[in-house]
């Protein structure tokens, strides 16, 4: 089972898009991340210089004044008590440096935080759950989970604006290559924006400790060329797949407890506790990124989620093999 988990993030490929698994904060592909990178490099330059100068001074002093074997211990060195000029110097210079750094921070803070959304920007409502992400597209009436589809904008014209909140504990949204963190806090709404410059799958994690499975609360932003994004939204707006030969399986699914926690639009399955399954098969992973979404893994997951994601809030349903086959075949019909 764990070998599946191990493969989850490796095998996934959206046709024609590259998956960016190295989440290097210094290789940003969106405006906020880029602004933060610039601030970071400036800070690194300044602090690096300070380190070389001060560190060098310390090492030189130690080397130069280490006690030689030949000098006699009774002879004390000249007793120096201090020097106002020197001390004034190394008080004032740091103050000046600090003001430079403050200026840098202030500018970037303003540029990232005070950017106001253009009227027709895509709005997404992201809701944290222990331990998965609910993704709502209010303007499109779409609800999905764990995988956020957004349009890529090479010119950064149509950015995506996110409203972040949580239903249980604090989580944190972090896609290093797009932007820094923003927390999802219950009873409070935070805002942030991203504008991926290239199509691709941007990987990230929940970045605020939120309990047992914090480690496996993975997150993926899928940036698509505008027309691909359009087709995706159209697909998501369709009612749940409903092909004839899966009807038996559908009946089976609806007879099980699944319906208490999962929503499949237009069916008796109206639970709200777990992820929306209406278009489950349009997602590449299950369990917030722990498994690749294929028949084998679906079966394993439904059989016992606790094995892939110990402690997660979906219980093992103790289904018979027959029920499993039916349920999985139904799930796979949810294109």
């Amino acid at each position: 089972m764990f070998t599946y988990a191990l493969n989850a993030l490796l095998q996934v490929q959206v046709p024609g898009i590259t998956e960016r698994r190295i989440t290097d904060i210094f290789k940003p592909l969106a405006t906020p991340g880029e602004a933060e990178r610039q601030a970071a490099f400036l800070t690194l330059a300044i602090t690096g210089a300070i380190f070389i100068v001060v560190g060098g001074l310390i090492i030189y002093t130690v080397w130069r004044f280490r006690r030689r074997a030949d000098d006699d211990s009774r002879q004390e060195p000249p007793q120096v008590y201090g020097s106002n000029q020197i001390e004034a110097a190394w008080t004032i210079i740091p103050i000046l440096i600090v003001f430079v750094l403050i200026g840098v921070s202030a500018r970037v803070i303003a540029s990232v935080q005070n950017a106001s959304p253009p009227p027709k920007a895509l709005k997404i409502r992201l809701i944290g759950h222990q331990w998965w992400w609910e993704v709502q597209y209010p303007d499109y009436g779409i609800v999905t989970a764990n995988e956020i589809h957004v349009p890529a904008t090479p010119d950064g014209k149509n950015a995506t604006y996110l409203e972040l909140t949580s239903v249980d504990v604090i989580h944190s949204f972090w896609i290093p290559q797009l932007a820094g963190k923003m927390d999802l806090i219950p009873n409070r709404t935070n805002y942030m924006w991203i504008d991926p410059r290239e199509p691709g799958v941007y990987v990230g994690n929940c970045a605020e400790y939120c309990g047992t499975q914090h480690a496996n609360m993975l997150l993926r932003v899928i940036a698509q060329a505008p027309q691909d994004f359009k087709t995706w939204t159209l697909g998501q707006q369709q009612p749940a797949g409903n092909d004839a030969q899966a009807s038996g399986a559908k009946a089976m699914f609806n007879s099980l407890a699944c319906v208490n926690c999962h929503l499949v639009r237009g069916t008796p399955s109206v639970g709200k506790f777990g992820p929306d399954l209406t278009h489950l098969m349009s997602r590449q992973t299950i369990g917030a990124g722990v498994l690749v979404n294929d028949a084998k893994n679906l079966r394993a997951w439904v059989n016992d989620p606790q094995e892939a994601k110990p402690g997660c809030f979906m219980p093992s349903m103790k289904l018979t093999d027959h029920e499993l086959d039916e349920v999985v075949s139904y799930l796979q019909s949810l294109k």
Binding site: E36, A39, T47, G55, I58, L101, V108
Partner: peptide, 28 residues
């Protein structure tokens, strides 16, 4: 002596964290 050098590094990384935009990336 080790303290001086290591605390220098520690302090300077602290300064990086204090640069709020940098910290949005580094936090947690």
């Amino acid at each position: 002596i080790a303290f001086l050098l290591q605390f220098l590094v520690a302090g300077l990384t602290g300064i990086m964290l204090a640069v709020a935009p940098f910290d949005w990336q580094l936090h947690d």
